[in-house]
């Protein structure tokens, strides 16, 4: 029985994969003035721009820190309006850094059949992939994987547990 060999293969491939549990987001280049906030203050390019360098703040508490998980409604693979900005910012980051590679991990909640849930998770990661590509990200920068209900972050069986598990996770490897 060479199942110890199998374990070592499995463990090795886990190590080679670089800790898939910890999404490593590249630094979102804080010097990029068009980044985060979208106030137009720094990009107007007009003569006589504001002598005080004024800009708005406090609109987006997560500005400067790009979310790596977006969530989905029950039985839906549509990116919610409030998450479209997150996807757009990932798109900008990928377009600006052609060397970046992102893996979109689709997940489903635990209800129903496991392999069908793999399909639902994949549908979500593909919805995000299409949105990235529409915004100019090259197909070869993106890979998708669906874990269905196999990798929950919330282990209970309440609606709020389910909502946390219906997600797409952005994982960068460069």
């Amino acid at each position: 029985m060479s199942y110890f060999k199998l374990i070592s293969i499995a463990v090795l491939s886990f190590l080679l994969a670089g800790c898939p549990g910890n999404p490593q987001v590249p630094d979102p280049e804080p010097t990029d003035t068009t980044y985060g906030g979208d106030t137009g203050a720094d990009t107007s390019g007009m003569d006589g721009s504001d002598p005080y360098g004024g800009e708005t703040f406090g609109e987006d508490p997560s500005a400067g820190e790009l979310a790596t998980v977006i969530y989905f409604e029950f039985d839906s693979s549509e990116v919610r309006p409030e998450d479209q900005d997150i996807v757009r910012r990932h798109a900008m980051q990928l377009v600006g850094n052609p060397g970046y590679r992102v893996r979109l991990e689709g997940h489903a909640d635990e209800r129903g059949s496991r392999e069908y849930n793999i399909g639902l998770g994949e549908r979500r990661s593909q919805a995000v992939r299409r949105m990235l590509m529409v915004q100019g990200v090259s197909a070869n920068q993106i890979s998708t994987v669906s874990f269905g209900e196999e990798r929950p972050v919330a282990f209970g069986s309440s609606e709020s547990d389910y909502a946390q598990n219906r997600r797409v996770q952005f994982t960068y490897a460069n």
Binding site: Y3, A10, V11, S13, P20, R114, E115, I118, E150
Partner: peptide, 13 residues
């Protein structure tokens, strides 16, 4: 009971 395969990544189906 025999464990025939073990992994830190999911096993399915």
């Amino acid at each position: 009971e025999h464990t025939v395969m073990e992994s830190r990544d999911p096993i399915m189906s």
